[in-house]
């Protein structure tokens, strides 16, 4: 019963943050600010949907004692871990490539990277 409520709460939080990511993609002005919305908010949302999967697998394991649900939970956990790592490295790579190829942040109060001549 508690597990069901936890699953629903995690799914709702995840979907809210994923939706905010999409809205941010449509509303923000340039590449960098859009990346803030899409990569980060959607990762946070996806981590919460993965948490819902983990809670689901734990509750099923406790009621059935079937080891396949441990496998489900562990794999979902590793998926969340891999998602967090690849998101960090991927968004850093996109931002660096964009800046090196001349796409500057267009509304920007300061750009120290351009001043450093890199």
């Amino acid at each position: 019963m508690i597990a069901e409520w936890l699953i629903i709460i995690f799914l709702v939080i995840g979907i809210i943050f994923n939706t905010l990511g999409v809205i941010g993609l449509l509303r923000f002005p340039d590449l960098y600010t859009r990346m803030h919305a899409t990569t980060k908010a959607t990762t946070f949302g996806s981590v919460f949907t993965t948490l819902a999967v983990i809670v689901y697998s734990i509750s099923l394991y406790l009621s059935t004692i079937d080891s396949q649900f441990i496998v489900l939970g562990v794999h979902a956990f590793i998926a969340a871990f891999a998602l967090a790592f690849t998101n960090a490295i991927g968004s850093h790579a996109i931002a660096r490539a964009a800046h090196r190829s001349g796409i500057l942040p267009s509304p920007a109060v300061v750009d120290r990277l351009k001043e450093a001549g890199r």
Partner: peptide
């Protein structure tokens, strides 16, 4: 960031 997505109050910039 969720607050800034809704209100669009941003001051973007690259800092060192």
């Amino acid at each position: 960031v969720a607050y800034r997505v809704i209100t669009l109050r941003i001051r973007p910039g690259i800092i060192r």
